[in-house]
Each structure stands twice: as C-alpha cells, then as structure tokens.
C-alpha cells in the first residue's frame, strides 16, 4: 500500500435490518452506506458532505468499526479491519477515535471530567499508576485549553465549546492516528466554531493526525479539508481534492449543494444561481433503480434509470458518478 495512505475503504456496504416482524420471511434492508470507496491520506483531512440522512455518520462509524460492515474492506495500513471480532480489534481501538456532534450526549453527566478523559486509557489498561494517569490527564487538559482544576468538575458546569474540547481530549488520550470528526462544530456558535477548528488544525500539525471530517457546512469543509467527498443516499457521488471540487464541480447534486451555501458578498450572491432540487430524498429502504439521484436530477437521461453510474476518473484526482457529467467533462478537457 502507498505509504501516504493511512486507511483505504473498498466497496464498503452497511445495511441495517429494519424488519419489524419477529418471524418475517423477507428482510427489509436500510442501505445506509452502499458501495463506498475512499482513501484517507496520512496527516490529511477528508471532508465528507451531504444532506441529513445520506449516510455520512454511518460511514464514519463503520470505518472505525462501531458497526460491522455488511460487505467491503477497511484497510488500516496492511490490516483488514472489516472481518475482525471485538477482541481482535482491541489493538486498533486506540488508533482510531471519534469526536461527536452533540457535546451534551457525548459526555456522561455522572462522571468527572478527569474520569471522562482517562476512560479510554482505563478501558485499554494502559496506566501503570494513578500518578501517571493524573499527569497524563493534566497534560491533555492543558493541551486542549482548559485548566487543571477543571478535572474534578462535572460536564454540566462547562459551556458547549469547552465540552467539545473535553470530547477532543478524550479522543486524544489514546494517542490515535485517525479521528472521525462527526459534525464536531455544527452545535456550536460561529465564534466558538473557529476556536474548535483552530484547535483541530493545531493538533493535526503537532501530532500528524488524519481526520475524516463529516459536516454539512460546506464553507468549513472547504477551509479545513484536503479532499472532499460528496454523499447522496448512501453513495459517494463525487470526490476530488478540495480546490478541484470547489472550482470544477461536476455532479448535479454537488452543484445544487454548493449553490445553497450563503454568500457573504451581496454582489456575488446576486450573480450566483440558486439551484433548488425538486422533491424529497428517496428512502434508502427502497432506493430508485439506476442512479440514486435521477428522481431529483435536473438533467435525467434514459440510461440513468437502468444503469447505476460508477465513480469515473476524470483527471486531476477527480472522480464522479454521473452518466452526464463524466462524459461531457472528459470530452471538454480533451479539447
């Protein structure tokens, strides 16, 4: 495997059985993540965008093996994590961590901050002594910008931003290499968002962390990411390096998403065209045939109903899954 790549996900599928009946013959499957592939490069940030319910969070959780994938491979360096049992995963548990969206439900209200931060290490039995634990927790608390005496307080005594920092400290306790940031800033107000993002960037510089940054804030994803993937209904529809994607978006869904980003400059806002998609997102229990986006696409073609478009390389590290865009773009570039 390429040294620069820390994790590679191949054709990952995560289907949930949502059959209501106890003895039903037919299974009802919710295809939260369907056939997604991506590579995460060491020390870089991969931004994952898409609207609510498109499978971003599930993809993040499956990559760190909170769920056992239905199919596909998750390569961590040279090890395939996808078939491993809980016991066999233990050595990798310390390498992969997660930062959560809701800082209220991500910290146990009955535990003191010091215990919350030390928890991953205690579970892994990585402490030689209580003193060592104390020193490590104090170092972490100072690193994320809280005071030492905050250790013996309870989570409800902190503000949203501080709580998110505590969640970050817990994720760092095991000195991970890879962190899934599951909408870490969407519950914070804008000034606090900047602080948390800066903290994440500093940590990435200092510790060489790799992030999978799940968000629906496209401006923030543009700011923080090196590569961006766009998801729709459990599928990755477009992926490219950040500047390539934001300047040459090809998939009609990406176009629509981007047009929804508020413009700070009113002159620019007047010029930009707002694309409003028709209809609702189809249910992932019964997705449309062919291209999942065809029911809402402004440029549907007959082929879209029959054939699911695969991710095609259109050059410059840019991949897109669309019959229309892939064809037109490659011909445009070749001229």
């Amino acid at each position: 495997m390429d040294d620069a790549v820390l994790m590679r996900v191949e054709n990952l599928k995560m289907h949930f059985d949502v059959s209501k009946r106890l003895f039903s013959k037919k299974k009802t499957l919710l295809k939260a993540v369907d056939d997604v592939s991506l590579s995460l490069r060491r020390g870089r940030t991969f931004g994952l965008v898409g609207e609510s319910g498109c499978g971003k969070t599930t993809l993040g959780r499956t990559i760190v093996r909170l769920y056992k994938p239905t199919a596909g491979r998750i390569w961590y360096s040279d090890a395939d994590l996808s078939p491993l049992s809980d016991a066999a995963l233990m050595p990798y548990r310390s390498k992969m961590q997660m930062i959560f969206q809701d800082s209220f439900s991500s910290l146990n209200p009955r535990m003191m901050v010091g215990d919350i931060i030390a928890e991953p290490l205690r579970i892994q039995h990585r402490f030689a002594s209580a003193r060592e634990e104390r020193e490590l927790v104090e170092a972490l608390v100072e690193r994320i910008g809280l005071r030492k005496d905050h250790i013996s307080r309870y989570p409800h005594e902190f503000s949203g931003g501080q709580r998110q920092r505590i969640g970050i400290a817990r994720a760092l306790a095991n000195t991970p290499e890879f962190i899934v940031c599951d909408e870490p800033i969407s519950a914070l107000d804008v000034s606090i968002q900047a602080q948390v993002i800066n903290l994440l960037l500093d940590l990435q510089d200092q510790m060489g962390l790799t992030y999978l940054f799940v968000s629906h804030d496209l401006s923030m994803v543009r700011h923080i990411s090196h590569e961006v993937g766009v998801m729709y209904l459990g599928h990755m529809v477009e992926t490219a390096p950040v500047h390539e994607l934001y300047s040459h978006m090809l998939h009609p869904y990406t176009e629509a998403l981007m047009s929804a980003v508020p413009q700070a400059d009113p002159d620019m806002a007047e010029k930009s065209r707002r694309i409003i998609l028709q209809g609702d997102v189809p249910t992932p229990i019964d997705p449309p045939s062919g291209c999942p986006f065809r029911t809402r696409c402004p440029y549907p073609k007959p082929i879209c109903e029959q054939v699911m478009p695969a991710l095609q390389d259109v050059g410059h590290g840019h991949f897109v899954a669309c019959h229309q865009a892939a064809g037109s773009n490659s011909s445009a570039r070749s001229i």
Partner: peptide
Amino acid sequence: YVLAAMLAG
C-alpha cells in the same frame, strides 16, 4: 458517550 466507550473497546 456509550459510543465513545465502545470505541475504546
């Protein structure tokens, strides 16, 4: 926080 604990194994 339950997910976080699962994540630590």
